[in-house]
Amino acid sequence: MSAAEAQEDPYVLGRGRGGADAAGEGRGGDDARPSGRGEGGPAPKRTVVGYGFWIYLLSDIILFAGFFAAYAVLSGDLAGGPGPQELFEQRRLALETAALLISSFTCGLAGIAAGRGAMLRTQGWLLVTGLLGAVFLGLEVQEFATLVAEGAGPQRSAFLSAFFALVGLHGLHIAAGLLWAGTMMAQLAVKGFRPAIERRLMCFALFWHALDIVWVGIFTVVYLLGLAG
């Protein structure tokens, strides 16, 4: 591929020989070059799997959007019960947020280690990711227990029902992610770096990063906006 051609078609949009001939340049044996646009054959499996999982993640985020909408509509209906400013604790929120953000980062490090075929480091970073996720989940369970003990359980008011539904749904996702991280560690240990395992690892990383994005929405809309009043 010549430099002039690269300039002309930087993103390999040309559809094989016809396009090249029209531009006055023969491409020689380049027809088989995969362009990801149908002409060069199917896209790599990794790309297709990533796309499919991305569609699932977006549908999951739409589910969260429904819960966010319910929370936004109901957050003012305290029914005489305690409001966000009496219930939320900023220190615990900061710890939860830090744990989840750093676990997202270590999840990326696990992916890098897997790309280099470094088993020990992959397992180590996955373990750190899972432990930080467990810290997050522990803090959340502690918060829920405190609220219920104070008589501010989900049955107290519409605001608290919506709060427990939204934050609890995210917590359930984190719990599923912890299970998945453990499964990946076991599969890596038993089966090693096979393409299928590496694709699953990629999907896990996507899932974990997406959950962190949802948490950004929760800690802003539910906690910080609630504390701001």
Binding site: G50, I112, A114, G115, A205
Partner: peptide, 13 residues
Amino acid sequence: APPGEERLDAREF
């Protein structure tokens, strides 16, 4: 690379 796409043949994806 697409989301999460981490090519094994690239130097650093």
